[in-house]
């Protein structure tokens, strides 16, 4: 089955996936990830501002995947997590360079830049954020 990700669909997300750029609402102070152009709480009063996440946060929940998504067959077992960024937004990302026995809700993590997947048959390589334990790297 050919990979479905079109070039443009990957390319247009580069600011978010490479640099964690997103938006926040100045009116209520809520940080979004991915970006919203409109605050669901403040609605017409929303004042949307651009921000780039610092890239540090805590594991909110996680799982070790043994039956992979298509394109991730070589990586099993791999760790997927919901990370709560220090700014407050939560996002889904893989954890890498982590020992499975160290996995814990609340563990501090920081962003790193990795390959996520690639198109089949010499297709384009998709890069994006993954997270790695802070204690495990550069103490």
């Amino acid at each position: 089955m050919p990979h479905r990700k079109s070039l443009a669909s990957v390319w247009r997300r580069i600011p978010q996936r490479y640099r964690m750029e997103s938006t926040m609402c100045e009116t209520c102070g809520t940080y979004f990830f991915p970006p919203r152009n409109f605050c669901p709480t403040c609605r017409r009063k929303s004042k949307i501002k651009h921000y780039a996440a610092k890239g540090t946060g805590k594991v909110y929940s996680y799982t070790v995947i043994h039956v992979p998504q298509e394109g991730f067959e070589l990586e099993i077992p791999y760790v997927l997590a919901v990370v709560e960024l220090d700014e407050g937004a939560k996002l889904t990302a893989q954890l890498c360079d982590v020992d499975l026995e160290d996995l814990k809700i609340g563990m501090p993590v920081e962003v790193t830049f990795r390959r996520i997947s690639e198109g089949k048959g010499g297709g384009i390589i998709h890069y994006a954020y993954k997270f790695t334990p802070i204690s495990g790297q550069n103490k």
């Binding site: 893989q94 990795r114 390959r115 890069y127």
Partner: peptide, 9 residues
């Protein structure tokens, strides 16, 4: 390198 690392990362 890890599986997800290359010259670019």
């Amino acid at each position: 390198p890890s599986l997800d690392e290359d010259t670019i990362t």
